[in-house]
Amino acid sequence: MDQVETLTMHEGVLLTHALLAYLASENDIRVLFVKGPGVVLQGLREGHQSTDADVLIEPQNFDRFLTLVESRGWLRRPSDPDGERFPTHSVTYYHPQWPNDIDAHKSFPGFEANSDTAFDVMWDGHTTVRMANREIPVPSLEASRLILAVHSLRSEWKHREQREYDFLLGLEISDQKAFLSICTGVGALAAARPFIAAKLGDDVISEWPKPSPEWVFRLSAKTGGLGRWHMLRQTPWQKIPRTVWRDLFPPTEVLLMNNLYTNTTPIGLAKAYLARFKSAMRTLLLSRSKLNVRSTQAKSRSDI
């Protein structure tokens, strides 16, 4: 599979699942393929063309699996080096000869349990689906349901995620006890609460845990700009000037995250930084506008 002729996105995604499953099996590494075509086959998502292969890797072999992926010519996409403020939960790969990406997960947003524990819970009861003439390991039906629900809630402002969430809401939970057990085991009760309450009632859990600051941040960060604005508001005032400077003029890797072909010449960087400044101003104005609206609404309610 090192040399691949022109592939369609559909072919690329299926064959990538097969390739990764082969690498994991041959090297005795546990992996689970999440979202993607697997959940379509499980009946949890309507037909949708995925553009990447999402694979959740057992934490103790995460780095070893990435080495295997890279040995097949896959290259890491740039990521924000500011891991302290923006910790990553996955590594994204692209390949010059493949149309799709690989999203290699070391954890899953919304799952607050220890990564090893969470993976073991997901692995327990896992199943397989047939894809590209190979058995592909995927989470159980209820575990996949949870992943999709949390993923949709994290990005509910997006049209596709909202449509998928509505589809999930229309499905019956086959095994409610197993579903709640998985939610508890991976520490996803707080993140999945809206879905659980909608399907089973808010009183199904006697004491709901509070969402983590990281999850609250992910819900507030509807765009990269809003995410940075949210973090800036929590930054000690002594560090604000340096933080603002870095957000407006970040390392080149940040500019390349969404577009590998970003012009990184001095003129290209100047244009990119100007665009970020304009975007930051729009985000700031939008945020202030929303705060003013909420303040007015709150005052109106207090006058009633």
Rank of each mutant, 00 (worst) to 15 (best):
E70C: 09
S90V: 13
R77F: 02
D63S: 08
D63I: 06
F65N: 11
F86N: 09
L44K: 02
D54I: 01
T67R: 12
L68N: 11
T67Y: 06
D54E: 00
H48Y: 14
G83R: 13
D63E: 13
V55F: 00
H48V: 12
E70F: 06
D82Y: 05
P78D: 05
S50W: 10
R76H: 02
T88G: 14
P81N: 06
L66E: 08
N61G: 04
E70K: 14
F86C: 03
R85L: 10
I57N: 01
A53W: 03
T51I: 12
T51G: 14
E84P: 01
W74Q: 07
R45T: 10
R77W: 03
L68D: 03
W74E: 02
R85A: 06
R45F: 11
F65K: 08
D54L: 05
D80A: 05
T88F: 11
F62P: 07
Q60M: 07
D54S: 09
L68P: 08
H89K: 13
D63A: 13
V69N: 09
L68T: 05
P59H: 09
A53K: 01
Q49M: 09
D82F: 11
T67K: 13
P81D: 02
E46A: 15
T67N: 09
A53L: 01
S79L: 04
T88Y: 09
L44V: 08
Q60P: 01
D80E: 12
R45D: 07
F62T: 03
R76N: 00
H48G: 02
H89E: 00
L75F: 11
T67P: 00
E84G: 10
G83Q: 08
S50L: 10
L68E: 05
R77K: 15
D80R: 13
P87Q: 06
V91W: 02
L41W: 08
S71P: 02
R72H: 13
G47I: 04
R72G: 00
R76D: 01
R72L: 04
G73S: 05
S50I: 06
G47C: 07
S50T: 05
T67V: 08
H89R: 13
G43H: 10
N61A: 12
L41R: 14
R72Q: 10
E46P: 08
W74T: 05
D52C: 03
G83Y: 01
P81Q: 07
L41N: 13
H89I: 02
G43V: 09
V69I: 15
E70H: 07
R64Q: 10
I57C: 00
E46H: 14
T88E: 13
G73V: 01
E46V: 13
P81K: 07
L75N: 08
